[in-house]
């Protein structure tokens, strides 16, 4: 740790240092402001606003097979990117702290909590969300993924809020080889909370898909 004692230094710019930086920065010069105007901008908080504009970074990520080129602040999580900017609201927010699994998506095939994933870290990755899980997803009449079918058949939900996360997690659970028994499924699905308590049905659904042997 010694070589990296202040890991946040470059990333986190407290107001004072941001001010200092902007006062001298070429960014303001590029805006052709006279020095006095620049100082005034700082005092009226315009520097914050200009800085904010510069804080957008480009990101390229493939989501459900579509390449997305977006410009985002580095603090945006994958979850908020999906929900608030790309309108993929199937992925849910239950805690924003990696404690509930409602936001589970696949990043390069691995299940992750989208709320704990800064969107910038997915540069170049393939992200799959509940909307992209079924292979032929052409709207309401499209074929469902076997796990989606099984959730309907076994009524693996009530309110449905945890369901996208449960399903994404369930698919990964089988792919990882962690669905050999109900006990194992319960263990490896415990990161996905269902407050409605559909657990018993969810486990049945997963076991059926696993035993059905279909590719998931």
């Amino acid at each position: 740790m010694a070589q990296n004692e202040h890991p946040g230094d470059e990333l986190e710019m407290p107001d004072a240092s941001r001010r200092h930086f902007l006062k001298q920065s070429s960014a303001l010069a590029a805006l052709a402001l006279a020095p006095t105007a620049a100082v005034k901008a700082v005092d009226t908080g315009w520097d914050q606003k200009i800085a904010a504009a510069f804080e957008q970074l480009p990101l390229q990520v493939t989501i459900n097979g579509t390449v997305q080129n977006v410009s985002i602040e580095p603090r945006v999580t994958l979850l908020d990117l999906l929900r608030e900017q790309l309108h993929l609201t199937g992925t849910k927010k239950g805690c924003d702290h990696g404690q509930c699994g409602a936001c589970t998506v696949h990043v390069d095939g691995q299940r992750v909590n989208a709320c704990l994933t800064l969107a910038m870290t997915t540069e170049g990755s393939n992200v799959t969300t509940i909307e992209g899980l079924a292979t032929n997803d052409h709207g309401a009449t499209a074929r469902l993924h076997p796990m989606q079918e099984a959730f309907i058949k076994h009524d693996g939900f009530q309110c449905g809020y945890c369901t996208p996360g449960q399903i994404m997690s369930a698919v990964a659970c089988i792919r990882e080889g962690h669905a050999d028994s109900p006990e194992e499924v319960r263990e490896y699905m415990s990161g996905n909370i269902c407050r409605c308590g559909a657990y018993a049905n969810i486990v049945e659904a997963i076991m059926e898909v696993k035993q059905g042997g279909k590719k998931v």
């Binding site: 609201t89 992925t91 309401a140 469902l144 989606q148 309907i152 939900f157 809020y161 369901t163």
Partner: peptide, 20 residues
């Protein structure tokens, strides 16, 4: 089967925060 099951398993069910 639950009549809204399909909406719930596809992410098509819109909860209040899903509206834009």
């Amino acid at each position: 089967d639950r009549v809204d099951g399909r909406m719930k398993v596809t992410g098509g069910a819109n909860y209040f925060a899903d509206f834009e």
